[in-house]
Deep mutational scan, measured.
Amino acid sequence: SRHTFEINGERWTVEGVSEELKEILRAAERASNDEAERLLRLALKLI
């Protein structure tokens, strides 16, 4: 499935992501810059 999210003013669209990964991306959208970066690094390990 496709998911579009915005982090630090940048929009991203990813396809074929699991519900778990979507949850991480949604958390990154709400997080501070440092926390968002940490969550994105974690998410990339899952891809």
Rank of each mutant, 00 (worst) to 15 (best):
28 A>V: 06
37 E>T: 12
13 T>I: 13
47 I>N: 02
17 V>M: 07
25 L>A: 01
29 E>V: 06
16 G>V: 13
35 E>G: 03
13 T>A: 05
43 A>D: 00
1 S>G: 14
15 E>I: 15
12 W>T: 01
13 T>M: 07
45 K>W: 13
9 G>V: 02
20 E>K: 08
41 R>S: 10
34 D>A: 12
5 F>V: 05
41 R>F: 08
29 E>L: 07
43 A>M: 05
27 A>T: 08
28 A>M: 07
42 L>Q: 06
28 A>Q: 02
31 A>H: 03
18 S>A: 06
32 S>A: 10
29 E>I: 05
39 L>D: 00
17 V>N: 05
15 E>K: 05
2 R>Q: 13
39 L>M: 05
21 L>R: 00
16 G>H: 13
32 S>W: 06
13 T>K: 03
46 L>H: 06
37 E>L: 14
36 A>W: 06
34 D>G: 14
29 E>P: 01
5 F>H: 02
3 H>F: 15
11 R>P: 06
24 I>V: 07
1 S>N: 14
8 N>A: 07
41 R>L: 13
29 E>T: 08
23 E>R: 10
21 L>N: 02
2 R>L: 14
32 S>R: 07
29 E>D: 04
1 S>L: 13
21 L>H: 04
33 N>H: 15
13 T>L: 09
8 N>P: 01
40 L>M: 07
33 N>R: 15
36 A>C: 05
36 A>L: 11
2 R>N: 10
24 I>C: 03
22 K>Q: 12
26 R>C: 06
5 F>L: 04
32 S>Y: 06
41 R>Q: 10
5 F>M: 02
25 L>D: 00
10 E>W: 09
29 E>W: 03
41 R>N: 09
45 K>Q: 13
44 L>V: 07
40 L>F: 08
27 A>Q: 13
13 T>R: 03
7 I>V: 07
10 E>S: 08
45 K>P: 03
17 V>A: 15
33 N>W: 15
22 K>N: 08
35 E>I: 08
15 E>A: 08
5 F>Q: 01
20 E>D: 10
31 A>K: 03
10 E>M: 14
37 E>M: 13
9 G>L: 03
6 E>A: 02
47 I>P: 01
16 G>K: 06
46 L>N: 03
37 E>Q: 11
38 R>H: 07
4 T>C: 15
30 R>K: 13
45 K>H: 10
15 E>H: 13
38 R>G: 04
38 R>D: 06
32 S>K: 08
26 R>F: 12
46 L>E: 04
4 T>D: 06
25 L>H: 00
29 E>G: 06
29 E>Y: 05
20 E>S: 08
6 E>C: 15
8 N>T: 03
45 K>M: 13
27 A>P: 00
34 D>R: 09
38 R>I: 10
28 A>I: 07
1 S>F: 09
24 I>P: 00
39 L>H: 01
33 N>F: 15
23 E>P: 01
15 E>C: 15
28 A>R: 02
2 R>M: 09
35 E>Y: 05
40 L>C: 05
10 E>K: 12
8 N>V: 03
42 L>I: 10
4 T>P: 03
4 T>Q: 08
27 A>D: 06
34 D>N: 10
4 T>I: 12
42 L>N: 03
19 E>P: 09
46 L>Q: 06
37 E>A: 13
11 R>L: 15
9 G>W: 04
35 E>K: 05
45 K>C: 11
32 S>Q: 11
37 E>R: 12
19 E>K: 07
22 K>W: 14
31 A>L: 07
3 H>Y: 15
37 E>W: 13
22 K>Y: 15
18 S>C: 15
47 I>T: 03
22 K>A: 13
47 I>C: 13
8 N>R: 03
46 L>G: 04
16 G>S: 09
29 E>S: 10
43 A>N: 00
43 A>F: 15
6 E>L: 15
34 D>P: 13
2 R>A: 12
26 R>N: 08
11 R>Y: 14
32 S>D: 14
24 I>H: 02
43 A>Y: 10
